[in-house]
Design a binder for these strands. Structure first.
Lengths: 153, 153
DNA sequence: CTGAGAGTTGAAGTCAACTTCATGTCAAGG
DNA sequence: CCTTGACATGAAGTTGACTTCAACTCTCAG
C-alpha cells in the first residue's frame, strides 16, 4: 500500500469496478474530482467510491452521463453528501423504471396481439409502427442494452 | 407516379418511414435487395415493405441489425415469405421481452430495498453492483433507449 | 539509489446505426 | 429536347461512453 487515507487510480478502479480510463474520463466530464500529488498523480478521497456507486446505479437505471452530471450538481456543495442526500436523488429513479417497464409491457402485449395475425403491417401493426419509440432516436440509438440482449438463452 | 408495380426509394421511404439513406444502408448490410433500372436506380418489390415492417418491429423489440440479419437468414429462400414465416420469427421476441421486463423489475425492486438505506455500497447494493448488467457492455453500451429516457416527465 | 510497476497526457480509435455532403446521373412531364 | 426533381455513390461525420496507444514520468520496496 501507499501512505495516507487517499486512494490511487488503481485502487479506486479495483474497488469500483470502473477502468482507470473511465475514471479519467469522468473527471474530464466533471463527475469526479481528484487531488494531485507533487508529481501529478491522482489521489482520490474515499467518498468518490460512493459517488461512483451512484454513477453506476444511475447508469444501470438508464441515465446518461449528462443526466448523472445534472443529478450530481444537485448535491450540496461544501459538505460531504450524506446518505439522505443520495437517497433523495435515487428515489427519483423509481418513476423512471416504472415507465420503462410499462413501455416494454405495452410492447409485449402488442406483440401478443400481433403474433398469430402475421400482419406486420406498417400502418396497423403495434410493433412495427414507424411512430413508435425506437424510430426517432437519431444515430446511435439502441433500444435495449447489449448485456440484456446477450442474456437470452 | 412512375410505371410498374415496383417502388422507388422515395416511395419505399415514404411508406416505410425509413429514410432513403437507411434503406441504402440496409442494402449494404444485405438486409434488403433491390432491382435496378437501366440507369442504375433502385426499384423495390412490394414485399420489401413487409420486410421493413419486420425490421422495424425487431428493432423496437431490441434486436441489433446483426440479429435482424441472422433472423432474416432463416426465411426460406426461393419463395416469398408467407405470413406464417413472419409469425414464426416474431414469436421468439416474446421471451426476450419477458426477460427484459424481468430484468427491469429486478432492478426496480432492488432500488426499493436500497432507497431508505442510502447505502449505495459498491459491494452490497443491488443497484450499484459492478457485476450487474450495464457494466460489461464495452464502448457504446447504453442501458435504455433515448426515446424512453426522453419520455420522462 | 534504483528498477519495476503504476501513473500521466493528448490524440486517435471503437462500436452501432445511420446521416450528411459533394458531385454527378436519371426519369419523365411539358 | 429540356429542365427539374429524384436518385446514385463513396467518403466522412455524428453520438455516447469509453478504450487504446505512444511516449514519458512517479513512487516506493528493497
Amino acid at each position: 500500500m501507499h501512505s495516507a487515507d487517499t486512494l490511487t487510480v488503481g485502487e479506486v478502479a479495483q474497488r469500483s469496478g470502473f477502468a482507470p480510463s473511465a475514471l479519467r474520463y469522468y473527471e474530464r466530464l466533471g463527475l469526479l474530482v481528484a487531488a494531485r500529488t507533487a508529481g501529478g498523480q491522482r489521489r482520490y478521497e474515499r467518498n468518490v467510491l460512493r459517488r461512483l456507486a451512484f454513477i453506476r446505479a444511475a447508469r444501470n437505471v438508464g441515465l446518461s452521463l449528462e443526466e448523472v452530471s445534472a443529478a450530481l450538481a444537485e448535491l450540496p456543495d461544501g459538505r460531504t453528501p450524506t446518505k439522505a442526500d443520495w437517497t433523495r436523488l435515487s428515489r427519483r429513479w423509481r418513476r423512471r423504471l416504472d415507465a420503462q417497464i410499462a413501455a416494454l409491457e405495452k410492447l409485449r402485449d402488442g406483440l401478443d396481439s400481433c403474433i398469430g395475425c402475421g400482419c406486420l403491417s406498417l400502418r396497423r401493426c403495434a410493433i412495427s409502427n414507424p411512430g413508435d419509440s425506437a424510430a426517432a432516436g437519431g444515430p446511435g440509438a439502441v433500444f435495449l442494452p447489449p448485456p440484456l440482449r446477450a442474456a437470452q438463452p
